[in-house]
Simulated scan of single mutants.
Amino acid sequence: MNDIIRTHATHGTAAVELGPHAPKPTALTEGLTEVSASTWSNGRIDTGLWECTPGDFTAERNGYTEICTILSGRVTIEVEGQQPEEFGPGDVMVMPSGWKGVWRVHEPLRKHYTVIDD
């Protein structure tokens, strides 16, 4: 059967409170913080909401692929050897396992993410 399993409603995700921010470990900008909340997981796939304050940070996707949709804010993603790309509300990004880059967050950013372990 293909029934929908509703474990957590995320309607109006821009208004969902995720809790207190914490310093981002890979921040290049002093004071940059982040917070996330998983809404569903089955051990191999995890999905939820994430947000971060403006600034720059490095990121790598080792051992997993991430698919995310920007809900609010703007970010420029820089990957070595490629042109920087800007993303905003409604844009979808796929960062496959092995991806490495720099996020330049221009304004408070919120995304919906789905992580799939290799």
Rank of each mutant, 00 (worst) to 15 (best):
P84Q: 08
H21L: 12
I70L: 05
F87Q: 09
Y113G: 06
L32D: 01
T33V: 15
M95W: 15
P20H: 10
T26F: 02
A22D: 05
G48S: 10
F57I: 02
Q83M: 13
T39M: 15
V35P: 06
I67N: 01
T53C: 05
S97A: 15
E80L: 06
E80P: 03
P96V: 04
D46K: 11
E30P: 11
T76I: 12
G48K: 01
T10Y: 11
E80M: 10
D56V: 14
M1P: 01
V105I: 06
V16R: 11
T47E: 12
F87I: 05
S97W: 01
W103H: 06
E30M: 00
S36C: 01
L109H: 04
K100S: 13
Q83E: 15
Q83F: 04
N42C: 10
T33G: 02
G98R: 07
R44C: 09
T114G: 05
S36Y: 10
G43S: 07
P89E: 11
G31N: 12
D117W: 10
A37T: 08
E80Y: 05
E34Y: 04
A15F: 11
F57G: 02
K100Q: 14
G90C: 13
T114H: 01
K100N: 10
S72E: 15
D3C: 06
G31D: 05
N2K: 11
G19E: 11
R110P: 04
R74M: 02
T26V: 06
H106N: 06
G19Y: 04
V102P: 00
Y64N: 11
C68R: 02
R104F: 00
G88L: 10
C68K: 09
T65K: 02
G12L: 01
Q83C: 07
P54D: 07
A27E: 07
V75D: 00
T69M: 08
M93T: 09
T10G: 02
V35E: 10
W103Q: 01
D56M: 10
H8S: 09
S36H: 06
M95L: 15
W99C: 10
G101V: 09
Y64D: 06
K100P: 01
A14P: 01
G88Y: 00
S36I: 00
L49D: 03
H21G: 09
I45H: 14
A14K: 13
I45N: 14
H8F: 14
P84I: 05
V92A: 14
T39L: 11
P89N: 08
G19S: 14
T47I: 12
L28Q: 13
D46G: 08
P54Y: 06
T58A: 11
V92I: 15
T29R: 07
K111P: 03
P23F: 07
